[in-house]
Design a protein around this nucleic acid. Structure first.
Length: 511
DNA sequence: TGGACGTCGCATTAAG
DNA sequence: CTTAATGCGA
DNA sequence: GTCCA
């Protein structure tokens, strides 16, 4: 594959993008030799979907607007479509509300797979525009990779995600994203309406099929070289005859027809849109669509007023959080906590810790070296922190979190909140976890993910007759606790489980 | 070929 | 009202 | 849908 972008450092202004948009752009960038980075100051070029300088000034430091190259994201699509680094100048963000940049194809006029007309990226992005799927052009997929990486025997790929290295974006990323569409479809009961799967027989099958797709994608994620043939694919663990067939279609046509069809399904798109709300899963979203005839988020908010707050702030919550902002949020909370009770330490977990350039939410695990399992102060401190946020008008909503319950009895406390930083209005989802010091690093492992990685840690632990949970490691036989040294940090947890160390950035076993 | 597929706590809803 | 079942997220 | 007993 030609390295089109030549290690160019690229920053994307997250405004007007959804998390899946960012994921897609990020994959395309990386696969074509670009480097997505976390901070606009260090970028060679900055991509945006904002069409006017005025809008731009609200989203980016004004000094950067003049000192950096800021272009419309269509530049990237066109570079990839033409397999060349195109002149950026025609794509510069135009002065306000003058018409689109008039741009003639700098090179061959032939195939113009630039997927979207410029007008589709306009300034008004309402929930109904939400597209959970990316639209990838065939030309992009057909761009081939050299199989020059050190090749491995596919069947030797470890069967557990916790024993493999899974990068954030892999060489077969576009194939995986294609398969993932099918997984999502299965997870939502294919095309069954709610009533027909209330008899749980068919529904359960679909869920199991979805799981099978998850595992196949997870294995592919850790596979080091570009898949070039079906025979190569079908010896990879968790890829059987059916998925091999899909891969075959992808290899010969550059896409999977089923996936492309699903991307255009109005019903599936609505159902996935509803699921962007916390507390709405596959069951509820189908109820909203099929029974209450909801088609927009506003419909959903009317059907269930408790979701109204989230709908109000939907576009904020959907806007990906650039990496460099995440520690600022953690520092704010940590500073407030320090005033309530000094000596706390914390680790930012979740996708941030796994190295993602943009996050949907922020997960932070807190502890105090003096906080042990039996002390009841942690709950009080957490409540005080929440009260403090309320006083500062930083707290917008509590999505989940209670001071009662058995988790609380074990000294583990959590609050999932919606908040904003002082003097800012932007809403951010933050999961705050308080752990006793004895299980701090176990918690950090548990909250770092990814989902598949966690799932296979548990499976691996079971094989050793152990139980891995966020509140500690114990023996399956008698339930007795395994002590893990906190001084040795996270590696001690892996050691206790007999696992090779895997860097957090290599734990991206989900798509 | 048939059973397993991670696991648990919180929250909401259905049942008693 | 209390308790059981289910959905949901991590 | 795939693996394994």
């Amino acid at each position: 594959m030609p390295n089109i972008l030549g290690y160019l450092k690229i920053y994307i202004i997250p405004t007007k993008y959804s998390p899946s948009d960012i994921r897609q752009l990020s994959a395309e960038l990386t696969i074509h030799g670009g480097q997505l980075i976390d901070h606009p100051e260090r970028a060679d070029i900055i991509l945006t979907r904002l069409m006017g300088r005025k809008r731009l000034a609200l989203a980016l430091d004004p000094t950067l607007i003049d000192s950096k190259i800021v272009v419309l994201d269509r530049w990237l699509a066109d570079c990839i479509a033409h397999e060349a680094l195109l002149d950026h100048r025609p794509y510069l963000v135009p002065p306000d509300h003058s018409s689109q940049p008039t741009h003639k194809w700098p090179r061959k006029q032939t195939a113009s797979p630039s997927t979207r007309p410029p007008n589709q990226h306009n300034n008004t992005r309402s929930p109904s525009d939400h597209n959970p799927f990316k639209t990838t052009s065939p030309a992009l997929i057909l761009a081939s990779f050299p199989a020059t990486e050190k090749s491995i025997e596919p069947s030797t790929l470890p069967r557990l995600a916790c024993c493999r290295k899974s990068p954030s974006i892999c060489i077969n990323q576009l194939l995986i994203e294609e398969l993932d569409v099918i997984r999502v479809w299965k997870e939502n009961g294919e095309d069954d309406t709610l009533e027909s799967d209330l008899n749980q027989a068919g529904k359960k099958d679909d869920e199991k099929h979805a799981l099978a797709y998850s595992r196949a994608c997870s294995a592919l994620k850790a596979y080091p070289t570009k898949i070039c043939s079906v025979s190569e694919a079908q010896v990879i663990p968790f890829i059987g005859p059916k998925i091999a067939l899909q891969i075959g279609e992808y290899l010969s046509t550059g896409q999977i027809k089923l996936s492309q069809t699903l991307r255009t399904s109005v019903r599936l798109r609505s159902i996935l849109l509803f699921q962007t709300l916390h507390g709405v899963g596959s069951r509820l979203s189908r109820e909203f669509y099929d029974i209450h005839d909801c088609r927009t988020l506003e419909d959903v908010a009317n059907a269930r007023p408790s979701l109204k707050v989230q709908v109000t702030y939907w576009s904020d919550l959907q806007t990906p959080i650039p990496r460099y902002e995440v520690p600022l949020i953690a520092k704010f909370l940590s500073d407030e906590l320090e005033m309530i009770s000094p000596g706390c330490i914390h680790t930012i977990c979740g996708s941030y810790r796994r190295g993602r350039e943009y996050s949907n939410d922020v997960d932070i695990v807190f502890t105090y070296p003096a906080m042990n399992r039996s002390s009841k102060v942690s709950s009080q401190v957490l409540d005080q922190l929440v009260d403090r946020l309320r006083t500062l008008s930083a707290l917008t909503d509590i999505l989940s979190g209670s001071s009662i319950g058995s988790n609380a009895l074990r000294g583990l406390h959590q609050r999932f909140i919606m908040m904003s930083l002082p003097r800012q209005t932007r809403q951010i989802r933050v999961d705050i976890i308080f752990a006793p010091y004895e299980i701090y690093w176990v918690c950090v492992v548990g909250w770092t993910g990814s989902t598949m990685f966690e799932r296979d840690i548990r499976k691996h632990a079971n094989g050793l007759n152990l139980k891995f949970a966020s509140h500690g490691i114990s023996r399956l036989s008698d339930g007795s606790e395994i002590a893990v040294s906190q001084e040795k940090g996270e590696p001690a947890v892996f050691e206790a489980l007999g696992l090779e160390w895997i860097e957090p950035t290599e734990r991206n076993a989900d798509v």
